[in-house]
Nucleic acid binder design. Structure first.
Length: 735
DNA sequence: TGATGGACTCTTTTT
DNA sequence: GAGTCCATCA
């Protein structure tokens, strides 16, 4: 494939300045839709192809895997595959993980350390609270984890935290922090925040490695700089080093992660921190029409202490922004679905170019129902959801404890799953032995016959279990078996995972149950196998030599630990995307609907006390609005279901701030035509729907069934043409 | 030892 | 409304 040329002439003056800047620090203030991604990719291409810089000297850091993948895809148009591979384009967390796999020993980590995500953190925090013997009722794991996380983001370790803790709550939090850290280390594990903390420690304490890194990544670029926290700032500083070839790109008006430790001062104070920094402003918007931009600008204008910025577009006024009031959430969901369908039908807007944003995940449910009933294809951005499922986490725990023998948390999770007669009592005895002899849990299990208080049956079970684990571990390091035919040896990891699911008894455990949800669990395990194969395929494609089975598994574990929600979105899917406003950052769509703009939800109850919080909520809506290219509507309702009961809702104060020229207000008080999902149509399912029968659909109107098979109905509608609907779900009635 | 059912608490946003 | 935790029973 011929490489594209780096076309600097098609860039605006400020864009070109940013793309061709070479030495020293630079701050690129990039408003929404200002061609930021284009600048970044042009820059990488320019550095390598025009300025003669080796691709491996380029390091560009983003926040999400999706953004990193997108960058890689675009860069691959300009560079050879080899060059693109050599450049470091990754997320902060992936970069840190890579550094620590290589040099982690220098800061006390084994190369095969586990990465604990929320669930494991929660479990560990609970153990820590138990150890510290706190009154369990007054200390919630999640609240304590929040404190610990903030501390880590500010590079405050548990000892420093304990030293400065004052008051009952703080002192106890400190105790938990200390215990939690100890548990992490005992499991040879790090949490998300630790990835940054340890990387910073590695680079600040070890001059030789810092030197290597600084020499290597001589050209550093950081995207979404407004969302960096102290640890990330420090890391950037350490990598950039005295040379200071640091280009940061961001927009203070899109800073929405304060609650996660992001410090907006990083971008606001960049110029005073790097006095020789050049500043470039990208203010022309290439995405949205003027009405959308004006409305968004009016909103954000209510924030104080901003860097002044004027957004302009030459795409024309476009459609007016709609502010719509609906009766309740289910009417809202239905009318939003109808609005999008209408855009699809009358303006030919592809569904893939549409999105619905909401403040909290819980709001997706009614939308799902509405989209399903209207037979509109949709996807929800919850990339992590799959990996949070019990059965998937079970399988992953097996894999994790194989890779990391010290990961007792994973081991505890699966030792008796499926039940093999190693119950809580037996585990207690093993645990006591483990502590007494200073062993890891697995080592202790292997000495089962010496452990007092274990019944013969438990000893036998433990022996069988540890033998099996040893066999699996042995397999991990066995040479590939070339006698296997049909590509078996190519997808070694896939084969291994498949076998493990079977041999562990997980498959039978979940399949054996006749209940419906467990049927689904077995299917999900199958999906994990497919995911593994996909991952392995990709891995083999990007490596010069096929990695060992163990290396493949380690790579898989890392990938799984670092998935994020936006990763699940497919852009070529033909589906409407539903997601939180946070996940929406960095994306764009032709048509956008923002729902539930109501007091308490937007701004959120828990973020409307302090001015700082309130302004962040305003920025959140600003981000959401500026995702839209041509159509934008923001809606609210009179009634909102909260906690299962209806409450009357107050329109968001932000709506008042948006109103003005180019914005049209509308009321739509029609009640939802169809309540709920499956339940209500049961009376008219089955043979009532046969070919030839005339039906009515709340959204598609009248039509005639032309085919019925496998629970699916193909219907020719008078106005909407031929559609295939699920018989038991679609809200059809006979005419 | 394991499964089942009921009571109980939460819900912001995520790498 | 829904997931989690705990207590009770087979």
């Amino acid at each position: 494939m011929p490489l594209e040329t780096v076309d600097l002439d098609s860039l605006t003056e400020p864009q070109r300045l940013a793309a061709t800047h070479l030495d020293g620090p630079m701050l690129v203030l990039a408003g929404p839709g200002s061609g930021k991604t284009r600048v970044i990719t042009s820059r990488v291409a320019y550095l390598v192809r025009e300025a003669g810089i080796a691709p491996w000297q380029v390091c560009a850091i983003t926040f999400t895997n999706k953004a990193a993948a997108e960058m890689r895809r675009r860069v691959e148009c300009f560079l050879t595959e080899r060059q693109a591979r050599a450049a470091n384009l990754s997320t902060f967390h992936a970069l840190c993980a890579k550094l620590l796999r290589q040099h982690g020993q220098r800061v006390g980590l084994t190369p095969n350390f586990s990465i604990y995500a929320m669930d494991e953190q929660q479990a560990l925090a609970k153990q820590a609270i138990e150890q510290v013997k706190l009154p369990a009722t007054s200390f919630q794991p999640s609240a304590l984890l929040g404190r610990i996380s903030s501390a880590k983001n500010e590079l405050v370790d548990c000892h420093a935290f304990a030293a400065q803790a004052s008051g009952f709550v703080e002192k106890n939090a400190a105790k938990v922090y200390v215990a939690y850290e100890k548990l992490l280390r005992a499991n040879q594990a790090v949490d998300f925040d630790d990835l940054l903390v340890f990387a910073v420690r590695l680079l600040s304490e070890h001059q030789d490695i810092r030197g290597q890194v600084q020499d290597r990544w001589a050209y550093l670029l950081i995207d979404e700089y407004q969302d960096t926290n102290i640890a990330q700032f420090r890391l950037a500083e350490l990598i950039a080093g005295p040379r200071g070839n640091l280009v940061v790109v961001g927009d203070p008006d899109q800073s929405i992660y304060r609650w996660r430790g992001a410090d907006i001062r990083n971008i606001l104070d960049f110029e005073s921190h790097f006095p020789n920094a050049r500043v470039v402003r990208l203010e022309q918007n290439f995405r949205s029409t003027q009405h959308i931009l004006t409305a968004a600008d009016r909103l954000i204008g209510h924030n104080t202490g901003r860097k002044p910025k004027k957004l302009f577009s030459d795409l024309g006024d476009g459609q007016q922004v709609r502010i719509v009031r609906y009766l309740d959430g289910s009417a809202e969901a239905q009318q939003v679905a109808r609005w999008l369908m209408d855009l699809h039908v009358t303006h030919g807007v592809p569904y893939a170019q549409m999105a619905v944003f909401y403040r909290v995940n819980a709001l997706s449910r009614e939308l799902e129902t509405a989209f399903r009933n209207a037979a509109i294809p949709y996807q929800i951005a919850r990339g992590t959801a799959f990996f949070e499922r019990k059965e998937i986490r079970d399988a992953l725990a097996y894999l994790r404890m194989l890779v990391n023998p010290d990961d007792s948390l994973a081991l505890e999770r699966i030792v008796n799953l499926p039940p093999r007669g190693i119950g809580a009592q037996s585990l207690k005895a093993v645990e006591a032995w483990r502590i007494q002899h200073g062993l890891s849990l697995f080592q202790a299990m292997k000495q089962a016959e010496h452990i007092t208080g274990l019944k013969a049956r438990a000893i036998a079970s433990l022996k069988a279990f540890t033998d099996q684990v040893d066999r699996w571990r042995h397999d991990l390091d066995a040479p590939p078996d070339d006698s296997l035919i049909g590509g078996q040896s190519e997808y070694r990891l896939r084969a291994f995972v498949e076998r493990l699911i079977r041999q562990s008894g997980l498959e039978k455990f979940y399949k054996g149950k006749e209940q419906e949800p467990d049927e689904e669990r077995a299917l999900n395990l199958g999906e994990l196998v497919s995911f593994t194969q996909q991952f392995e395929q990709e891995l083999l494609r990007t490596m010069d030599e096929p990695p060992t089975l163990r290396a493949r598994l380690e790579a898989l574990m890392e990938r799984v630990a670092l998935v994020s929600d936006a990763d699940g979105l497919e852009s070529e899917s033909g589906m409407v995307s539903l997601m939180t406003m946070h996940t929406a950052k960095g994306l764009e769509f032709d048509a956008v609907a923002v729902i539930a703009a109501e007091d308490g939800l937007l701004p959120h109850q828990r973020a409307s006390q302090e001015l700082e919080e309130l302004e962040e909520e305003r920025r959140l809506l600003f981000v959401a609005m500026t995702r839209a290219r041509k159509w934008l509507q923001v809606s609210h309702t009179q009634l909102r279901m909260v906690f299962g009961n209806m409450q009357s809702a107050i329109p968001s104060r932000f709506l008042r701030e948006i109103k003005g020229a180019g914005v049209r207000e509308k009321r739509d008080d029609t009640p939802a035509e169809f309540q709920g999902g499956r339940g209500d149509v049961e009376s008219v399912t089955g043979s009532a729907f046969a070919p030839g029968v005339e039906v009515n659909h709340p959204m598609f109107g009248r039509g005639r069934i032309i085919q019925a098979s496998g629970g699916r109905l193909t219907v020719r509608f008078e106005t909407f043409g031929i559609k295939t609907l699920m018989r038991d779900i679609a809200p059809l009635s006979r005419v």
